[in-house]
Design a protein around this nucleic acid. Sequence first.
DNA 1: CTGAAAGCGCTAACAC
DNA 2: GTGTTAGCGCTTTCAG
Lengths: 339, 339
Amino acid sequence: MNDIAVAAGVAQSTVSRVLNDAPLTIPVAPETRARVLETARRFGYRPNPLARALRGARTMLLGAVVRDITDPFFAVAIEALAGEARARRYNVVLGHAHGQADEAIELTHVLEAGHCDAIVLVGDMTDQPRLIKDLQSSRVPVVALWQGSRVRGIPAVNVDNRCGVRLALDHLTTLGHRRIAFVGGRPLGDIEERRAAFVEYLADAGMDLPDEYVQHTVNTPAGGSMSLRSLRDLPAPPTAVVAATDVLAVGVLNAAFQTGVRVPDDLSVTGFDDIPFAAYTVPPLTTLRMPITDMIAEAVRLAIEEDGTPAGERGRLVRVLAPTLVERDSTARPRDVPT
Amino acid sequence: MNDIAVAAGVAQSTVSRVLNDAPLTIPVAPETRARVLETARRFGYRPNPLARALRGARTMLLGAVVRDITDPFFAVAIEALAGEARARRYNVVLGHAHGQADEAIELTHVLEAGHCDAIVLVGDMTDQPRLIKDLQSSRVPVVALWQGSRVRGIPAVNVDNRCGVRLALDHLTTLGHRRIAFVGGRPLGDIEERRAAFVEYLADAGMDLPDEYVQHTVNTPAGGSMSLRSLRDLPAPPTAVVAATDVLAVGVLNAAFQTGVRVPDDLSVTGFDDIPFAAYTVPPLTTLRMPITDMIAEAVRLAIEEDGTPAGERGRLVRVLAPTLVERDSTARPRDVPT
DNA sequence: CTGAAAGCGCTAACAC
DNA sequence: GTGTTAGCGCTTTCAG
């Protein structure tokens, strides 16, 4: 910047003013402005964001700590996040918390220490209490997404898990199912809420719920596959399975196929998330569409926009958006209930 | 840092030395060192990476420009990248090039302008020539991954597409298939190499290849699905389909199911990438396993490790790793060829 | 309207 | 061994 100041025959501060479209209160002569702009262009000038940030300006970097990018659902979320950030001329710094808590902690240190203007937590991080605790005392705004049960002190944007599960169960019971099982990942955050809503619904409906009908496994197709096998080995296997995520549902579908169980004739399956693949499973999956775009937009707004909310109050900001049921071909009337 | 210097009763430079484990050539009195460390801890000191970077040190940030995070294959790659980066105490700054070329270009400006120590391109970016051109004159090291045909001036780590396609076709022809079609995304980079290898193989083998047997579509399940429908409408539909990616293969499998074509009885399908879902499709997909971990490790090494290669020579660094065939249940002997 | 100058937090000579 | 000092590239008063 100094070079270009010299070349244009003006002071370096003037260059700064021109290049930053300085406040109209301190105008620059159009002629000077043009000359500076021209010289800057010739020099191929690029502002150094580091120096800028050091001086107190924003880094235009949004930190994202994501539980597991490998999960297509989160991948889509990250894409939406990148898009939303980009629209606000932000870039996304990525960190994944997969693995040891220590890693995630170290990560947030980096993110927080002035590099990012805000941090968004993508996915349940409740099994990493130290991370959460660390973030609560963060100087930069932190927003949590899909954190399930609200994390104290951190504003959050969540999906209405209870509503989603009810949608799925209404659908299934209306079809005539009475023996319905639940397959979920580790009972954290969202998953735990979905499990609780499931149990509550069945209790309210006065339906039987053997302990074995609630399966907990890892949130991968492999986990879903294993769970269905366990379920089928029961004396009275369920006629429908509510999977806590589409990723699990994919495993359930696969295990059904492998063991000769026809979906939806012998077994109905519902997912949760509506990942891109959900429409292309065999058969296409009935699932709950997550309002990802809206959730991300809201989260970014909370993270970046300086509203007047005092820091102490921010933690109370919680938005809950509702999912919608997408009926595809993995659910049908059970065999014993004729039309 | 100044505060802590005052509090500990030493010079700020001493604090810097202690906190950075300064070179042994300028030792610090153990007692002073201890006092500084203690004070720093009390103050909850966190180094400001911005200032550090401004001073010329590295940012410990690795820029990743990824074609489409939504693609599970790239998601896995990013996860591997994050892991490898983390192992070297780096963080990953993410940018996705999905969409307009302008976006990606703007993106690299940000990444390049001193924010990142190196940039890695994940996926074919050959349709964004300006981006590539921009990057070639980059001051920070750039490494390309899955760039397909080599990009001039940028070191690259690629998969051996020719080898992969041959593996798939050897497998299929050995089973007895003679009418084999190819379904690929836009003919760029890797995809184009795969298509070329496919055409070449069939020509060498003296097998028929109607023009319609080479389908180009979008790299999504929807694209794969549409392509298979077109293929089935042909007077002589293929008995096997080589999909250029697993994502396409998922669509092919779905379309087969929807149109009553049984896989592998009526149709064999192979994929490419071995994404996590590949083992859980219906039926499980025969595909080519990508040596992701090795490729990522190599790319990170090229990007971060300052070897002695002169800048002008770096572009000639190209590594090509071979995929391996994973036989699952989506391929079998065609109906008209009895055992 | 424009220039001079003071730092932002840190590192790296260069003294003492 | 430790303190002093000069910037890194930029924004931002404060004077002209």
